[in-house]
Design a protein around this nucleic acid. Structure first.
Length: 884
RNA sequence: GCCCCCUUGGCGAAAUUGGUAUACGCAGCAGACUUAAAAUCUGUAGGUCGAAUGACCGUGCCGGUUCAAGUCCGGCAGGGGGCACCA
C-alpha cells in the first residue's frame, strides 16, 4: 500500500502543456461534416484582470460538457474571448494615467494565464477581444449593413443620462432608476441617438420563445414580461362641440387632431364606467393648452421635476390638472367626460392618453377619490347577485359579468370587449373608424449610442451639407485613436485634436466623425458567430457559421436573462436579413448557473472582515470565528454573493496554489445543483481535496497489484468481483445520463459511491488473476467517469495504469447492458400503502406470479388473517400494494 | 401592485413518469492505528416510545384527489427573483 500524496502543482502544468503541444482542443477552421458538431460556449468574461469564483464555476461547467461531448465522439467547438470594451478601462485609465487599451490587453494576458491554469479545454487559437481592430472592423460593416437594411435609425429622444459615467443608457441598463454600472440616479435628457429597431421584432421575439425548449422557463418568462405584449383598443373620443371649436381656434382650422382624443385601453368592456380622461404631461395637446395656460405650464414643470428612481415613483402622489375640456361618451348621448392632465400617464406607451375607469383600476380609483369623480362599477363579481354598490376604495379587477352598461349588460368581460370593438370599428369619426384593435408592446427600441471613448466607433460622418453620411466600406475600419486624454470630463473623442476631422465622403467638404461609440452589448450580440471563423474578411463565413450555429449549449449567469440574451436574439435576426447567417435563433440550449456565495464576517466595529483574516472553530456543532492576529471575536453573518464590498471573496488564485485546479473544479461542481447557488466553505474544499487523494491512493494501490492489462473473462470472476463489475457499469450508465443532463452534482455522487465500492473491494481482493485485472478495468472506467471534472488527475491516474494515450483523447466507455440488467428484482410490498416488507422475484415474473408470491408472504398472510384482499396492485418492476 | 420560482435530517442535497423518502457529501459522535497529533480506516446516525423484534410520526402549514403524494389539485405562511405609474 502506498502513502504517496498527489501533488497537483507538479502535475497540472505538465498536463496543460502536453495538451497544448498536442493541440487537442483546437478545432480546425475547416468545414468538416463527418462528425456531429457540438458548440459549447460560456459567456465570455470582461477582462477585469483576475478571474473570480463565478468564472471558475461557469467555465468548469462548460469544460465538463466540452470534454464529455468530445469523449462521446462529437466534433466540439469550445472557444474563448474577451468582452473588452467598456467603462472600467476608462476609469482605470483616469486613475492610473494609463491608456484603456494597454490596461485592457494587460488584463487579458493575466486572465488568459489564469484560465489556462484551470485546465479548461478551450480552443485558444480562435481567441479574440472585442476591442481588437479586426473584430470591431467587422462590427462596423455589420452596422452599415443594418443601416442599409433599415434596421438602424437616428432620432431625437428623451434618454436616460448617467451623470457619473457621462453617457446614455438603454432602458435595460437602468436598474431601479439608477445606472447599472455607476449606481447614480439617471436623469432625462433630449439627445439625438442611434437606435436599433428591435421593437419591430417584438411579436417575432415573443413568439419564438415558445420554440426555445432548452431554455430555462424562468428566462423565457422574463423575456416575455420584458417584451410586454398587450392587446387592446385604440379609441377616438370626440371633444364636446364647444371644445372642438375652442381647439380649432387654438391649433389651426384644418387640424383634424383638434376634434378627437385618442386613447389606448385593454379594458374597452369598462367603457360605461369611464369617469375621466387623462393626458400625459408630454402629450401634444398638453403642450398646446399650456401655451395659453400658465397654471398648466407650472403643473407640467412640476411633473418633470419628479425623478425616475424607485423611491420617488412609489411615494409620488397621483396628481392631476383639470383642463376644463371634456369629451363625449361614445355610447351615452349627452354624457361628457372631463379631461385631465395626470402625472402618472406615460407619453411613450400607447397614445399617451387614457380613459379612467375608477371602479376597476386601482390607480384610477385613487385619482377619482382625490378629485371627487364618479365611480361607476360595471363588472359584477360572480358571487354577487344584485347590482348593489360593492366598492369602497378598492377597485375590482377580477372576473365577472357586465352590468350598469346598457347593451353590454350580462355579457362576459371578453364578449363585452369584442362587442365594443366591433361597434366602434364600424362607426366613423372625421372619416376614420372610431376605434381600431391594437397590440402594444412594452419593448422600446435599443438606443446604442454611448458618449464614451472605449467602444467601437460608429462608422458615420456628419456633414453640414450632406447630413449624416455612412463611412464608405473601403474606408473602414474607423480606428480608435491610441492616445487620448481623460483630463476633461465627457467623451475623450470629442476632445481629441484631430480624430474627428474628416472630409465628407459625398461632397469632399470638411466634416466631422461621429464621436459616439457603440454600447458594449452590441459587441457581445454576435461574438458567438464570429468564433466560427474569427479570421474571416467578412463578419461571418457563411459555410462555417451555418455549420456551427446555433450554439448547442450556452452557459452563463441569470443576470443576462434580458439584456444580452434578448439583444443577441435580435442581432441574429438582423444578421439573417443582411445575409450573414442562415438562422434566427442563435442559442439552442441555455443554462443559467447559480452564484458562488460565502459567509460574511464583521468585527466588533461592524466592519467587514475577509475569510483570510479569521479562524473558524467548530466545537460540537457551534461555530465561532476569531481574528487571527488579535484573537478578537468576529460575528458570523449571512451567506451572500462574493463581493469586494463585503470582503467575502475567496481568490481562485490562492485555492489553485493550495489545492490545485482539479480540487477547485470538483468542489464547485459537487453538492449544489448547477442552477442553484453554491456555498463556498473551507471544509467543503478540503473534503474535495481529500477525495482527490483517495482516488490517487486507489489508483496506486491498484497499479501495485500488477494485474493483467486485458479484460478478464466474466466467467472466471469471483462473485464479489462480478458484483463490483456490475456496480461499475451501473454507475457508468448513471453518470453518463447525468452528465448529459448537466446534473454534475449527481454525477459526482455516483463517482463517490463507486470509488467507495472499489476501495472496499481492493482491501479484501482475492489472489485470483482474473479478479485483479477486473479491478484494473473498473478503475479505468472510473477514471474516465471523472475525467471531465478533474482532467489533470485523470491523466496522471491513466498514465499510472500504463495507458499509451491521453485520457483526453479516449472515447467514452459504453456501459454493458448485460451487466446492468439483473435476473432478480426486489420489490417493496405495501399493505394499505405502507411498506411492510419486500419480495425478491425473477425480473421476468408476470403480474400473476408476483401476486401469488406476495399473497404467500408471512406478513401478508397475517395482515389478511384469512380474508381475500380488497385489491391487489402490482406495478411491474416497481411496487406491490395489498389493500386489506 | 403584477408575474415567476423555492421550502426535504445539524448543513449542502438525492428521489427520471405519482410507487421503498433522506442516495452522495459536509459537519458530528464512537472506535481502530499512533507516545501523541495529523493523515487514514471502521462503525453510527430523521423524530418519539421501547431492553429489543418493533410501533407510531415525519418532506413549511391546512385541506383534497388516489390503492399509493416530497411529486398532482385548492388554500395559507415564509424566503428569493423579475417587472413596475404600461392604461
Amino acid at each position: 500500500m502506498t502513502s504517496e500524496r498527489y501533488n497537483p502543482r507538479a502535475t497540472e502544468s505538465n498536463w496543460q502543456s502536453r495538451w497544448e503541444v498536442a493541440k487537442l482542443f483546437e478545432t480546425p477552421i475547416t468545414s468538416d461534416n463527418s462528425r456531429e458538431k457540438y458548440y459549447v460556449l460560456e459567456m465570455f468574461p470582461y477582462p477585469s484582470g483576475r478571474i473570480h469564483m463565478g468564472h471558475v464555476r461557469n467555465y468548469a461547467m462548460g469544460d465538463v460538457i466540452a470534454r464529455y461531448k468530445r469523449a462521446k465522439g462529437f466534433e466540439v467547438l469550445h472557444p474563448m474571448g474577451w468582452d473588452a470594451f467598456g467603462m472600467p478601462a476608462e476609469n482605470a485609465a483616469m486613475q492610473n494615467n494609463a491608456q484603456p487599451k494597454d490596461w485592457t490587453y494587460e488584463n487579458i494576458g493575466a486572465m488568459r494565464q489564469q484560465l489556462q491554469s484551470m485546465g479548461f479545454s478551450l480552443d485558444w487559437s480562435r481567441e479574440f477581444a472585442t476591442c481588437d481592430v479586426n473584430y470591431y472592423h467587422q462590427q462596423q460593416k455589420l452596422f452599415l449593413d443594418f443601416y442599409k437594411n433599415d434596421l438602424i435609425y437616428r432620432k431625437q429622444s428623451k434618454v436616460n443620462w448617467d451623470p457619473v459615467d457621462h453617457t446614455v443608457l438603454a432602458n435595460e441598463q437602468v436598474i431601479d432608476g439608477c445606472g447599472w454600472r455607476s449606481g447614480a440616479p439617471v436623469e432625462q435628457r433630449e439627445l439625438t441617438q442611434w437606435f436599433f429597431k428591435i421593437s419591430d421584432y417584438s411579436e417575432e421575439l415573443l413568439n419564438s420563445l415558445d420554440d426555445l425548449d432548452r431554455w430555462p422557463d424562468k428566462v423565457r418568462t422574463m423575456q416575455r414580461n420584458w417584451i410586454g405584449r398587450s392587446e387592446g383598443l385604440k379609441i377616438r373620443f370626440e371633444f364636446s362641440d364647444t371644445d372642438q371649436a375652442t381647439l380649432k381656434k387654438l391649433k389651426s382650422e384644418n387640424d383634424k387632431t383638434s376634434s378627437t382624443l385618442e386613447v389606448f385601453t385593454t379594458r374597452p368592456d369598462t367603457l360605461f364606467g369611464a369617469s375621466f380622461m387623462a393626458l400625459s404631461p408630454d402629450h401634444g395637446l398638453t403642450s398646446w393648452l399650456a401655451k395659453s395656460n400658465p397654471k398648466l405650464q407650472d403643473y407640467v414643470k412640476e411633473c418633470h421635476k419628479l425623478g425616475t428612481s424607485l423611491a420617488e415613483i412609489e411615494t409620488a402622489e397621483k396628481t392631476g390638472f383639470d383642463t376644463g375640456l371634456s369629451v363625449k361618451h361614445p355610447f351615452i348621448d349627452g354624457k361628457t367626460i372631463p379631461v385631465y392632465v395626470a402625472n402618472f400617464v406615460l407619453m411613450d406607451y400607447g397614445t399617451g392618453a387614457i380613459f379612467g375607469c375608477p371602479a376597476h383600476d386601482q390607480r384610477d380609483m385613487d385619482f377619482a377619490r382625490k378629485y371627487g369623480l364618479e365611480v361607476t362599477p360595471v363588472v359584477l363579481p360572480p358571487d354577487r347577485l344584485e347590482a348593489s354598490f360593492y366598492l369602497q376604495d378598492e377597485a375590482y379587477t377580477g372576473e365577472g359579468s357586465i352590468f350598469n352598461s346598457d347593451f353590454l349588460n350580462g355579457k362576459s368581460i371578453e364578449d363585452a370587449k369584442n362587442t365594443v370593438a366591433e361597434m366602434l370599428e364600424s362607426r366613423s369619426v372625421d372619416g376614420e373608424p372610431q376605434a381600431e384593435r391594437q397590440i402594444n408592446y412594452r419593448l422600446r427600441d435599443w438606443g446604442l449610442s454611448r458618449q464614451r471613448y472605449w467602444g467601437a466607433p460608429i462608422p458615420f460622418i456628419h456633414c453640414d451639407d450632406c447630413g449624416i453620411v455612412p463611412v464608405p466600406e473601403n474606408d473602414l475600419p474607423v480606428i480608435l485613436p491610441d492616445n487620448v486624454s481623460f483630463e476633461k470630463p465627457g467623451n475623450p473623442l470629442d476632445h481629441h485634436p484631430t480624430w474627428s476631422n474628416v472630409d465628407c465622403p459625398t461632397c469632399g467638404k470638411a466634416a466631422r466623425r461621429e464621436t459616439d461609440t457603440m454600447d458594449t452589448f452590441v459587441d457581445s450580440s454576435w461574438y458567438f458567430a464570429r468564433f466560427t471563423d474569427p479570421t474571416a474578411k467578412t463578419p461571418t463565413n457563411r459555410d462555417l457559421v451555418d455549420q456551427w450555429l446555433p450554439v448547442d449549449q450556452y452557459i452563463g449567469g441569470i443576470e443576462h436573462a434580458i439584456l444580452h440574451l434578448l439583444y443577441s436574439r435580435f442581432f441574429t435576426r438582423a444578421m439573417k436579413i443582411c445575409g450573414h447567417v442562415g438562422i434566427k435563433e442563435p442559442i439552442k440550449g441555455l443554462f443559467t448557473q447559480g452564484m458562488v456565495v460565502h459567509e460574511t464576517y464583521r468585527n466588533a466595529d461592524g466592519g467587514w472582515v475577509s475569510p483570510a483574516e479569521i479562524r473558524i472553530d467548530d466545537i460540537e456543532g457551534k461555530r465561532t470565528a476569531t481574528m487571527l492576529d488579535t484573537n478578537a471575536e468576529v460575528k458570523i453573518g449571512n451567506i451572500e454573493k462574493m463581493s469586494k464590498s463585503k470582503r467575502n471573496i475567496i481568490d481562485p488564485k490562492e485555492i489553485l496554489e493550495t489545492y490545485g485546479a482539479d480540487t477547485a473544479r470538483w468542489f464547485v461542481l459537487s453538492d449544489s445543483p448547477p442552477e442553484r447557488d453554491v456555498i463556498w466553505s473551507e471544509a467543503g474544499v478540503e473534503g474535495a481535496h481529500r477525495f482527490v487523494q483517495r482516488i490517487w491512493r486507489l489508483v496506486n494501490n491498484t497499479a501495485a497489484l500488477d494485474a493483467e492489462k486485458s479484460a478478464a473473462d466474466k466467467a472466471e470472476l469471483s462473485s464479489q468481483a462480478l458484483d463490483v463489475l456490475k456496480a461499475t457499469h451501473k454507475a457508468l450508465a448513471k453518470t453518463d445520463t447525468m452528465l448529459g443532463d448537466l446534473r454534475f452534482n449527481n454525477a459526482i455522487a455516483q463517482v463517490h459511491s463507486i470509488v467507495n465500492t472499489l476501495e472496499q473491494h481492493l482491501r479484501k481482493i482475492s489472489d485470483k488473476t482474473s479478479d485483479k485485472s477486473n479491478l484494473l478495468q473498473c478503475v479505468k472506467i472510473v477514471i474516465q467517469m471523472f475525467a471531465p471534472m478533474m482532467p489533470h488527475l485523470a491523466e496522471e491516474c491513466w498514465q499510472k495504469l500504463d495507458n499509451d494515450h491521453m485520457v483526453a483523447t479516449a472515447l467514452w466507455p459504453e456501459a454493458d447492458q448485460t451487466l446492468i440488467v439483473e435476473n432478480d428484482i426486489t420489490l417493496p410490498v405495501q399493505i394499505n400503502g405502507k411498506k411492510r416488507g419486500e419480495l425478491t422475484i425473477s425480473i421476468n415474473a408476470d403480474n400473476d406470479a408476483v401476486s401469488e408470491a406476495v399473497l404467500a408472504l408471512d406478513f401478508v398472510q397475517s395482515a389478511l388473517s384469512g380474508k381475500t384482499p380488497k385489491k391487489l396492485i402490482v406495478v411491474p418492476k416497481r411496487i406491490v400494494n395489498v389493500v386489506v
